[in-house]
Each structure stands twice: as structure tokens, then as C-alpha cells.
Amino acid sequence: MSAEVSPKEPLFSAKNKKLLAVPLNRENPITVQVLGICSALAVTVKLEPAVVMSISVIAVLAFANVIISLLRNTIAPRIRIIVQLVVIAALVILVDQILKAFAYEVSKQLSVFVGLIITNCIIMGRLEAFAMGNKPWPSFMDGIGNGAGYAWILIVVAFFRELLGSGTVWGLPVMEKVGIYNIGYTNNGLMILPPMALIIVGIIIWVQRSKNKELIED
């Protein structure tokens, strides 16, 4: 885990911007740190569950970061992982309950993956690497930034998988409206299966690295 941002930077707003922006690209949790891949494969068949999952992860990550940051001086190092887990688990259960109450259909599609946010490495990674050593506000920004870094990959992957696999975008039959089926186009069933998510993530990584030379390893 990289501790990329020094904790005592006087320029508050500039630092915050960096906290938000860096995880979107250079320190992206999925494409660079390769964390949270499991859910990125599982919930990206359609756009709607991907967006709901993204919002859930952003919320859990931001609040967990803030709570751990507030508690950071009271947590005994020996039990810090347990404390982090309890906080994450509590937030995830809350999110799950709220989805079941107000977004029942989507919560059914996400099924176990909401619960599995608990095991998402991104969250515990940020708590350990950032929230344990930083003030609440920067921790909040870091949580939003990393959550958004996870989210945009998920949404891009889901967009292409839904468009090419089911011919729809957010349930709207785009491909049918364009009339592409009349000239012999068919949906690619492979896009619905998890391996294609991996390939799309691979393509995103490829594009990202070809644009950003500092990400290329020797």
C-alpha cells in the first residue's frame, strides 16, 4: 500500500484536490493498485447495479475513513484491524438495509456483493494507509477520491458490457433504436460473462498506461 500524500501539508485546498484527483488516475484502486477486482467483474453486467454499487462503496469508504480518522488516537494498535472491520461491517450492513428498503430491485441484483463490500481491499487499505494517520476532513476527501476512482472504472466497464452484451444503456434499447439489428448485428453474449469485464479492465489499463508513462514498470 502506498502512502503517497504526506500528512502535514499546509496548503489545505491544493492537497485536498490532490487527494480527490490522484486516485482517479495515477493511484486508481482498480487499474493501478488492482484492488476490488472481484466486485468489478460481478456487478458490471448492467449500468444500474454498477452505479448503485459505486455509490454504496463511495459512501462506505468516505464514512469509514471519517469515523476511523476521528477515532485514530483512541484505537490501540493491537486491535486496530478489528476496530476497522467493525466500522466497515456496520456501515455495509446499514447500506444493505437501506438498499433493501428503498431500492429493492437493485439490491436483489447486487445480492451478496453489497455484503462483500466488507471484504473489498480498497476500503481497509485506505483506512490503514490514510485514515489512521490523517485528520477527518482529508480522510473524507481521500475516501471520496478512492471511491470515485473505483466508481468510474465500474461505470465505464458496465456501460460497454451492457451496450455490447444486452444492446441497452440503463435499460433503454439503444441498439434497437439505432436499427443496427437490421443489418445483421447481434448482441455479444460473451460480454455478459465475467471474463469480458476483465478484458475491458485490461483495455482501460492499457489505454491509461499508454497515456501516462510514469505508470509503466520496467
Binding site: I75, A76, R78, I79, I82, V83, V86, A90, L94, I98
Partner: peptide, 22 residues
């Protein structure tokens, strides 16, 4: 002693929050 009290309080708070949300 601190660790035991800390964990107990934490768990009780979390339980209270979750059960009321539920």
C-alpha cells in the same frame, strides 16, 4: 483493561445503531 472496555463500548454502540436502523 482499556482495550476490553474500548471494544465492549464500540460493539454496544454498533449494535444499538444497527438494531435501531433495522
Amino acid at each position: 483493561r482499556y482495550i476490553f472496555i474500548y471494544s465492549s463500548v464500540m460493539v454496544i454502540i454498533v449494535a444499538a445503531v444497527l438494531s435501531s436502523a433495522s
